[in-house]
Structures are given as structure tokens and as C-alpha cells.
Design a binder for these strands. Structure first.
Lengths: 144, 144
DNA sequence: ATATTTGCAAACGTTTTGCATGGAA
DNA sequence: TTCCATGCAAAACGTTTGCAAATAT
């Protein structure tokens, strides 16, 4: 159902990029593969520390950046919450519905760029961003 | 033509909020009123320092945050470039076309939320974000 | 064997805080 | 005259870097 990148795919990406597969990187991939939403570097570090008490923050950062550069992770800067990461969906173009409480995401296929929008000026378009924010059902229930 | 917030409007917002109108705050408003795109705190600080050599960085930050909280400024986090600010357009709903080179913005009225998108799950929608990125005509010409 | 990756520590840039002084109301 | 805003300095925060030791290839 989901088209989230799997551990196997992430490791393939690393191998293809010529990187070595260390236990830390495997663990990093597992953490993202089993997570629903956006994760902060600190959360990822804490999770990694469960398996590797001696892991260092800079290793987490380095690998987050590498995976992000390779396209295996998507970055997102939450206005209050800073930079976070989630597995990217490489298979098809879509946008996200993001719960502002738990930061879980749902995908949807509608893309405004397919609608022939009339834009002002003479821009050379390069990319776009469309996200809808809200409170997911679970969080709504939990708030009662 | 433009519906950017003017100096007068920004000062009104400050007065309505019960803030005192200092020379620094007036200057801050002027800098934004005469600017086209997103400004970094550092740039704003440099501009302010032209009028007030003794201005401090924390004053700039405090006032940027205050104006932002009051809705007079919009924040945007550029993935490489950090947090920046521009005057918000309080008059009507619209979205932005952002030049990734000079960070100038153009507005356009099309809003994907008016299109009756079918969304997955049961979300309580709170807000959305739609931006198109590209290179503006001036920057395209300058690149030749 | 050897080149990459790690952990440590220290540096870095940005943003925030506490407090005495200065300035707007 | 009163209280808010400022400037200064220092701290906090997230992230990055240099290097020797450890490890995947």
C-alpha cells in the first residue's frame, strides 16, 4: 500500500552511491522504515542510542545529510520544531497531508501544477511545494 | 498595485498591539516596506546599522519575531539560507512564486484548496502551503 | 591492506536570555 | 514618571569540522 522507501531500498541506494554499510547506517535505515512521520535529528539519535549507546550525534547528522543528498530522505523545516527528515517516496509524484500534532503524513495525488495555472511574469519554473496541514483523526480523538 | 503592507500599516499594527514606536522599529518597517523579497536577519541588521550604527542584533531579532507574531511579517525557512522574513500580504489570500536566485516573490491568486481536492483520511484541516519556485526573468538574463 | 566511517572534542553560526541603561508614553 | 525597549554580554541551541582510532570492503 505505502510506497515508503524500505530498508532494502535505502541500503541499495547507499551501495549504489559507493558507501559502506555499517551497523549504524543499517539501524538508521530501520528507524526510518518503521516510522510514520518526520523525525528530528535528536529523536533519531535517541533511537539509535538504544541500539548503539556509544553512537555520536555527528554520525547521525552526517548520515542524515548523506541519505538526504542521495534522495532517500526528504527534509522539511517545521516552523516550530526545526529540521526533520522522513523517508522519501521515490515511486511517484504526490503531495502531503501533515498532522501538525504528531507530524504523521498521508499522501495524496492531486497536484496543482497539472491545472494549467496562469502565472504572472516570466519565470523559469524549477519546483513547487504543496502541503496541507491539519490534525489527524487519532490526534483529534486524543484531544478530547 | 502591490498589496504589501506599508510602513503606516505596520506601525498601526504595533500601536494596536500596545508597542512603543521607536526609531529602530520605524526603520525596520521602512526596510521591509521598500524591499521586494525575503530578507535575512543579518541583512536586516546590516541595513539598520546604516541608520543606527549602534543597533544590536538581538533588537533586530526581537522585533522581527514580534512583527511576525503580530502577522505583519511572514516567515519562511529557505533550505539553504535559513530563516527569512518579508512583509505579509494581509489583504487577500494568495500564493507565491519565489525566485530561488534573488528570493524576490510574485503573487498569484490560484489556490488549490478551492478545487475540491479529495483527501485521504479524516483530517481536520487547519492550513496549507503552496509555493512555486523558479528563476525570475532578471536572474535568467543575468545568468547569460 | 586500505580507504571510509566513526567517536570525540572543539568550533561555528544563529538565535535567545538576563540585566542595567536609555527612551517613549 | 513609569514602564517598555535597547544594548551589551553571555549563554543556549543546532549543526559542522578536524583528527586519530576503528571497521567495512
Amino acid at each position: 500500500m505505502s510506497d515508503k522507501t524500505t530498508v532494502k531500498e535505502m541500503i541499495e541506494i547507499m551501495v549504489r552511491g559507493g558507501w559502506r554499510i555499517t551497523e549504524q547506517r543499517r539501524t538508521l535505515a530501520e528507524i526510518f522504515a518503521k516510522s510514520e512521520g518526520y523525525l528530528s535529528p535528536k529523536y533519531v539519535y535517541d533511537q539509535m542510542a538504544l541500539s548503539y549507546p556509544s553512537v555520536s550525534f555527528d554520525t547521525v547528522y552526517r548520515n542524515l545529510r548523506l541519505l538526504s543528498d542521495m534522495g532517500a530522505l526528504e527534509q522539511f523545516y517545521f516552523m516550530d520544531g526545526g529540521l526533520k527528515f522522513r523517508t522519501s517516496c521515490l515511486n511517484h509524484h504526490h503531495h502531503h497531508l501533515i498532522c501538525t500534532n504528531c507530524e504523521k503524513t498521508l499522501t495524496f495525488d492531486y497536484c496543482p501544477m497539472d491545472q494549467g495555472i496562469k502565472l504572472p511574469g516570466k519565470f523559469k519554473l524549477t519546483s513547487h511545494r504543496f502541503e496541507i496541514y491539519g490534525i489527524c483523526e487519532e490526534c483529534q480523538n486524543a484531544m478530547d
